[in-house]
């Protein structure tokens, strides 16, 4: 029996269960907890793929950072009753189109890759993930990296401007 594959299926199933439970729960806190389960399961899959750095960052940023803030906001406003969907037909149509587009993009990507045929183990870097990711970010991917950091800066300034009390 291939243990790596078994562990992969276990965490993949956990991630899918977490995702489904997350969108079906009515209680916002429960939904957030299931989303954390999904993030952690995906992180575990990264470990099986030999990407330890990606694991650490996934847990640190998504599970440990973003979801904590989500949970914080949910608890602060304390949603008692889930509100019914009240968007009207136009909004429903827009959501459906966007969702279908996203699905199409992902499906196309999956079909073009050799998903399911190639072995799922990536070649781990000899000198370790951390050094490799760092070197790549500051050489080949320098421009996208800088663009993303400017984007984050803009978002941050925007949040400060929105949150500032009116004079």
């Amino acid at each position: 029996m291939d243990w790596g594959l078994a562990i992969f299926y276990f965490f993949a199933a956990l991630a899918v269960v977490g995702g489904v439970m997350m969108i079906t729960r009515k209680n916002a806190v429960h939904a957030a907890v299931y989303l954390v389960l999904t993030f952690v399961s995906v992180a575990a899959i990264y470990i099986i793929l030999g990407a330890e750095f990606l694991f650490a960052v996934q847990v640190l940023v998504y599970a440990g950072g973003i979801m904590v803030l989500f949970l914080f906001v949910i608890m602060l406003v304390n949603l008692e009753e889930p509100r019914r969907f009240s968007g009207g037909r136009l909004r429903l149509m827009t959501s459906a189109v966007v969702t279908l587009l996203l699905f199409g993009m992902l499906a196309r990507l999956f079909a073009r890759s050799d998903g399911g045929h190639a072995p799922i183990v990536a070649a781990p870097a000899a000198e370790g993930n951390l050094q490799l990711v760092g070197a790549l970010l500051f050489t080949d991917y320098l421009l996208p990296f800088e663009v993303v950091s400017v984007l984050l800066l803009v978002a941050m300034i925007g949040a400060i401007v929105l949150g500032r009390p009116r004079a």
Binding site: V29, F53, A56, V59, V68, L130
Partner: peptide
Amino acid sequence: NVGLVFLLAISSLGIYGIML
């Protein structure tokens, strides 16, 4: 080989027990 980052990641999860 990412020991320190691993530690940071794991320690950031402890807060869930307190919040929940």
